[in-house]
């Protein structure tokens, strides 16, 4: 990666917006297209909001959340790591059912679906009691 930036994220509902703003400045300064920026901002927002809201329920460890951005000639990569409970959004998040009539549609559950569908590639691994999620976009 030619340019990198890392941020520690606190356990506060305002943090996703702060991280997204830092990310926006980082990628816009380095010439990434608006469409990719907007998709990644949303994915980052949804994933972090999820981790902060639910990732540390009944977890005794001190929460640690870290986001690393990397930008190369032909690839944008965002890594999100946390030491919360094991959660693989690619496998553990329920798929929304869009065939349900409006009055039966659940109010939540769209965030992870959006992240998965707006980013070119997402991979997950559980490593040393940490969730490691990597979002990748060829440029």
């Amino acid at each position: 990666m030619d340019v990198t930036l890392g941020i520690d994220v606190g356990m506060d509902q305002h943090e996703p917006r702060r991280v997204v703003e830092v990310f926006e400045r980082f990628v816009t300064a380095n010439g990434v297209s608006d469409l990719v920026v907007q998709r990644f901002c949303l994915a980052l927002d949804e994933i972090l909001t999820n981790v902060i809201s639910y990732g540390f329920e009944k977890v005794p460890e001190e929460p640690r959340i870290r986001v690393d951005f990397g930008l190369g000639d032909q690839v944008l990569e965002v890594r999100i790591e946390d030491n919360g409970r094991s959660f693989n959004p690619l496998a553990d998040a329920p798929l929304p059912d869009f065939t349900l009539p409006v009055d039966e549609r659940p109010i939540g559950g769209l965030g992870i679906h959006l992240a998965k569908n707006l980013v070119h590639d997402i991979s997950y691994r559980r490593d040393k009691k940490r969730n490691c999620l990597t979002l990748t976009q060829p440029l």
Partner: peptide, 14 residues
Amino acid sequence: YISSAGLRILLLAV
């Protein structure tokens, strides 16, 4: 910009 938190409100309105 709208995230799922905003979509939730639109769904409630619908």
